[in-house]
Design a protein around this nucleic acid. Structure first.
Lengths: 222, 222
DNA sequence: AGGAAGGGTGAGCGCGCTTTCACCCTTTCT
DNA sequence: AGAAAGGGTGAAAGCGCGCTCACCCTTCCT
């Protein structure tokens, strides 16, 4: 064996899955001496907290139970060191690419063979991307049009950043030197693309602990 | 009993690599009981023939020694069942995506850890895509622009198909109901994108055995 | 030598996306 | 109730890309 003790076991955290899937994951991961399952059945609302607590290398999330596709984005923003592996039922190429563009490292079908899921976890733990057959390959040179579906435009990314800082539309408009109506348009498109409904969804997704004690503003009124 | 003897060992064929890399590959693959290395050090000009002879599930090709990026495309066209794993020195995201769009199943850096290369071979043998860290992930929602670099447009794919059939520019123009000048423009762009110089390169790439005995024409003058 | 092919450049048209803004409405919070 | 935010629609301008074609040149092959 070239490598056995050069690094600790890969810590894996699994979100909530269907019972059968969860049992299978537990079994498979426990069988691999190089994988360590630190926690399973984590509800989507508590993933951030548990990542903070256990600092896993890989987190397995269930596409079907995500609050929104944007949760992957938020997880990646909050914990860029943690590799996100998305398990979906029958992911389309578009879905996989959206997941990747939101920061996921791998996107797998739940129909994937067990050994391949384990392989993918290993690869993902070291940053490599794994995608199912369907994605990234349509059959030839032509029929290939992944990417570009629900990605944020550069301007939308600008607005998103300020949105995450808690700025109002008027503040964003002033900062970017554009009109408030334009900011509202960008915000609408961001919400639609990220699959959320409001800036409060954004805030909720981004923060592990809500801690909204309704206190006075701290620094926003610079 | 997830899977143990439900399928034969995965047959792997390795193209010509640097000596050290080749030795390492041989050692690694022979260590894996589920992998079978059928042939190594295959020169690029003989890959087609050896694929035909051994029918491997996976072929490892060396990006640096490819005749052109289009060789991957040609291999995929000729043997769609064989998964192509490209090993490159330090592949850029663009290169990896070009390889994928040309039909490769995985694109790896030679710096990849040994166990990950083996994992990737397994995943690739079942059609899953594996990409290095650098590819498919730029950092966030914005800086992400993979794909769309050197892909053929639908019209170019039309022209390529006829080009592969050996049609002249005039015949292609007539078939597609466009002008010869337009065909020449498409052809130029195809050659540039595929990294080749002429339709004869295309023909050479597509045929396992060159058989250019410098003799009289055999079939061109149909 | 003549024809086919290839390389370079540029031009026009159409389509889709991005960015900007405007107007309408409802919902939510204070 | 008023302000902020959100949803829907639409429109105009700009940009890039794909497709089409044209003109110039050189190279290759017979």
């Amino acid at each position: 064996m070239p490598s056995s003790a050069n690094d600790a076991r890969v810590k894996v955290l699994a979100a909530k899955f269907e019972d059968l899937v969860a049992v299978g994951l537990r079994q498979l991961i426990s069988e691999d001496p190089n994988l360590e399952l630190v926690l399973t059945d984590v509800p989507v609302t508590q993933i951030e907290g548990e990542i903070e607590r256990h600092e896993p290398s890989v987190v397995l999330v269930n596409f079907g139970t995500l609050k929104s596709p944007a949760q992957v984005f938020q997880l990646h923003q909050s914990y860029p060191e943690t590799r996100i592996v998305v398990l979906a039922n029958r992911p389309t190429a578009a879905e996989c690419n959206q997941m990747l563009s939101f920061g996921a490292t791998a996107c797998l079908s739940k129909e994937t063979e067990a050994r391949d899921i384990i392989n993918a976890i290993h690869l993902a733990s070291r940053g490599m991307h794994v995608l199912p057959r369907s994605a990234a390959s349509g059959g030839g040179v032509d029929s290939l049009n992944l990417e570009g579906s629900d990605l944020l435009t550069p301007r939308e990314a600008d607005v998103l950043e300020l949105l995450q800082d808690g700025a109002t539309n008027a503040q964003i408009a002033h900062t970017l030197s554009i009109g408030v109506e334009t900011v509202r348009t960008h915000a609408r498109n961001i919400y639609r693309k990220l699959g959320i409904a409001s800036r409060r969804d954004l805030a909720r997704l981004g923060r592990p602990e809500p801690v909204v004690v309704e206190g006075p503003d701290d620094e926003a009124t610079a």
